[in-house]
């Protein structure tokens, strides 16, 4: 059952990702394809018993971040003819081919490699794994410093945004 669900979510995620990249005509549709991918990834998290992370994935990525994308896209009102004409087409095709070949090689390598368990992956899940209680406890005990450092990161991003965007006296 969960294997089939994984295939279903995986397929939605891949199709959504392809739709986002290939849909060059309409940026809003691209962003909505991204929503589909994010929701499907949230489903994969739930299948891995990471319920809290799954919920966050939907709330933060599918909800907040992509909505922000859509806002920006609509504000900028981009149309296809608004982009500068694509130059150096050959170079781009070559680059895409090289990256694609490398990716295909990696996938092929992964398929041929013998199945080895990731260290720690075979251990039984602890009680309450993936729940908000456990995530919260980890966040405020073991990873307290990382949590606080992230707030420093947000502070610098905020100060930076103000510095770069605020209207100053005398500035145009």
């Amino acid at each position: 059952m969960s294997l089939w669900l994984f295939y279903a979510f995986g397929a939605v995620a891949v199709i959504g990702a392809l739709g986002m990249v290939l849909n060059v005509r309409n940026a809003v549709a691209s962003a909505l394809c991204l929503v589909a991918t994010m929701v499907a990834l949230g489903g994969v998290h739930v299948l891995l018993e990471a319920y809290f992370v799954g919920a966050l994935q939907v709330l933060v990525y599918a909800g907040a971040i992509v909505v922000l994308f859509v806002f920006v896209v609509m504000l900028l009102n981009l149309r296809r003819d608004g982009f500068p004409p694509a130059r150096a087409r050959l170079g781009r095709v070559t680059a895409a081919a090289v990256v694609g070949a490398a990716l295909a090689g990696l996938v092929g390598l992964a398929l041929t490699l013998p199945e080895t368990a990731v260290p720690g992956a075979t251990a039984a899940l602890p009680e309450g794994f993936g729940g908000y209680r456990r995530v919260g406890a980890a966040l405020f005990t073991d990873y307290l410093l990382a949590f606080e450092a992230t707030s420093l990161l947000l502070l610098s991003a905020m100060v930076g945004a103000v510095v770069l965007a605020k209207r100053r006296g005398g500035d145009a």
Partner: peptide
């Protein structure tokens, strides 16, 4: 690295 870099970009 990120806390170093974000203010540096600005």
């Amino acid at each position: 690295l990120e806390v170093t870099a974000i203010p540096a970009y600005v």
